[in-house]
């Protein structure tokens, strides 16, 4: 089955991943252009593209720093993993919305890909 690929709003991503938002006033109309999934922040810095939604299992503050530096629109933690308070605080400060999905990293990435959100190098 052919699926049209393209940007996806945070609202739709949240809905499709059954995710909860853990930062205040998420800008749900914001669009992610691509998806990026890794627990290795150097990979996100190397292969990520601007306006990506970052899916990861890593909940340390460095995830938020990475999202900030790499121009990600939002971060979604997989495996239902709740980040520590310092991560949330940093995200609130730098305006990066955070979500938590009960899905595994593989399943969350697969679901968004299937719905038409492209991976990073594909939009070049």
């Amino acid at each position: 089955m052919e699926v049209a690929t393209g940007p996806m709003t945070l609202r739709r991503i949240q809905e499709m991943l059954g995710a909860s938002c853990i930062t205040a006033d998420p800008p749900l109309d914001l669009e992610a252009l691509v998806g990026c999934a890794s627990d290795l922040m150097s990979n996100v810095l190397a292969f990520g593209r601007p306006h990506a939604i970052l899916l990861t299992g890593l909940t340390s503050p460095q995830t938020v720093r990475t999202a900030e530096v790499a121009d990600c629109v939002a971060v979604c933690f997989a495996y239902g993993r709740q980040p520590p308070a310092e991560t949330i605080e940093l995200a609130e400060g730098s305006g990066i919305p955070l979500f938590v999905t009960p899905l595994t990293l593989y399943a969350a990435s697969g679901r968004l890909y299937e719905l038409g959100l492209p991976g990073c190098p594909e939009i070049e």
């Binding site: 810095l45 990475t66 900030e68 121009d71």
Partner: peptide, 29 residues
């Protein structure tokens, strides 16, 4: 735990100077 603070500060500064987002992003990374 402070890792990334310099990158974050420099990024804000370069943005404030109105630099091209691509250059800012590569410098911050």
């Amino acid at each position: 735990s402070e890792g990334g603070e310099v990158a974050s500060s420099l990024k804000k500064t370069l943005r404030r100077l109105g630099m091209h987002p691509d250059v800012v992003r590569r410098a911050a990374i």
